[in-house]
Each structure stands twice: as C-alpha cells, then as structure tokens.
Amino acid sequence: MLNTVGVFIRVKLPKLIFRPLELKNMKVALFIPCYVDQFYPNVGVATLQLLEKLGVEVTFPMKQTCCGQPMANGGCEQDSKGVYEHFVDIFADFDYIVTPSGSCTYHIKKHYDIIEQTPAVQKIRKSVYELIDFIENVLKIEEIPVDFPHKVGLHLSCHGQRGLRQANASEITGVRDGQISKLLRKLKGIELTELDRNDECCGFGGMFCVTEEAVSARMGQDRISDHLRNGTKVLTGGDVSCLMHLEGIVKRQNAPIKVMHIAEILNGNQP
C-alpha cells in the first residue's frame, strides 16, 4: 500500500486457466469501498488484476459509492438508507459482488435489514463476497502461484474473522486457521509470523478511531508491537480500514514494516 502514488507495477503471472464452469455467464461486479477508492486505489487495481488473472470477467459499475457503514456504526443507520438503496440500485443486476473488504461485506449482509427486503435487497445480501472468500469458496481456488519470500504478519479483521467467520476465533478454539492464512501459507518463500495475540482487534473501529482516539491509538500501537516483537516485515490483512490505521502508526513510528493488502500480495506485487 506504500506504492508510489499513481504508479502501478504490473507483475507477470501465468494467467490462470482455472475457471469453474458455472461461473461462465455469471455477472461479477467489483465493489471498491469509498476509502479504498479515494486513498488506496492501488488495492482496487490489485483486486481487479487478480480477479482477471483468475479468469473472472469483472464489471466495475462507475456510479458506486459506499456501503453506508460509517454512518450506521456512528448511530445514524436511518441516514444511511439512501446509501443502501443506491448500493442496491447499482449492484442489483449482478450474480456476485466482490470486494476487498470483509467489513463492508459484513455490513451489507448483516445490516441491510432496515430497508424493505425486496428481492433485489435479498439477492444482494447473499451475493456480496469478500475477495478471499470469493476466491476460495466460489472460484474454488486453493493456491495462487506467487513468490513472496518475506516474513508476513497477518492482521485478521474482526468483521472478516468473527463477522463472516472467515477465520477461527481464539475465543472458540486454539487452532489458528482461516481463509487468508490458507492461501498465504502456500506462497513460495513466505514465512508467517506467529503472533502473541492472534486475533486482537487493531482499534480502528470506524468513527471509534477519532471519538475514542486514545484507546484506538493504543490498540493499534499494541498490535504493531506484537508484529515487531515477532519479526513481521510485511503486514497484511483483508481490510484496508484496519491496515490504514495500522499503517498510520507504522509511519508515525518509522517502524520497519511494510503494509500491503492481501490482494496486492496475491496479485504478485512485491513490497
């Protein structure tokens, strides 16, 4: 995510041959969340390129904006209704909506219950997928041939992990596993960081990051310390929001950690 602004490195990857039959004729939309669109366009590009390499024909509806989560988490769910309806209008025609954010996916699935449950709304709540979930469970891809000879620390986003159940939760089991780590483990040359606290929240929390600035910052600092202590060189995760917050701390502390979204790594980008 620290790529120079506006410059996108294309990495040659064998175009994947794999494409499940049932996906032909399926209409797949790419949803790039508002803050990714504005501040992390390279994560959007990596997501798009990755999906294309995996043989998916992706449409990006130009009129998309946001899932409405920021207002809703701030206690203004009712104000979000217009945003929800706009989202539904834009994406209603697609069979799959793929987004590099567990948090937005969770919000749409869980909290689009306050608008009228038209067939379109019901369909959207089912068809929205977080990127890695889509790769593993719709595309059925278990391995992506990428070299990544770095020590990688995975930050589990709570909405992906506990919201969408994309990874085991330490409250439930001592086995540390999940969708992202399954793919990461298979990258060539990669070493994964064993954290002291595998799934503690980073402290971003939407508006929380400013309304509860002191605790939010402290939580982020503690996550970074855990990664530093255990040797992380590249910090990754499935949600740009967590990573934006953690990167903000890394940069402030001048810590020797590079922050990359999982789409960037799987797309073959190098730190």
């Binding site: 602004v5 669109d37 992390y40 910052a217 917050h245 990167e247 903000g248 701390i249 940069k251 402030r252």
Partner: peptide
C-alpha cells in the same frame, strides 16, 4: 498518534 494515508492523485 497516526499519519494520514497519502492522498493519491487518482482515485
């Protein structure tokens, strides 16, 4: 306690 993300030219 945090830096803002770099603002890219292009969205």
């Amino acid at each position: 306690a945090r830096e803002l993300p770099d603002a890219p030219k292009q969205s």
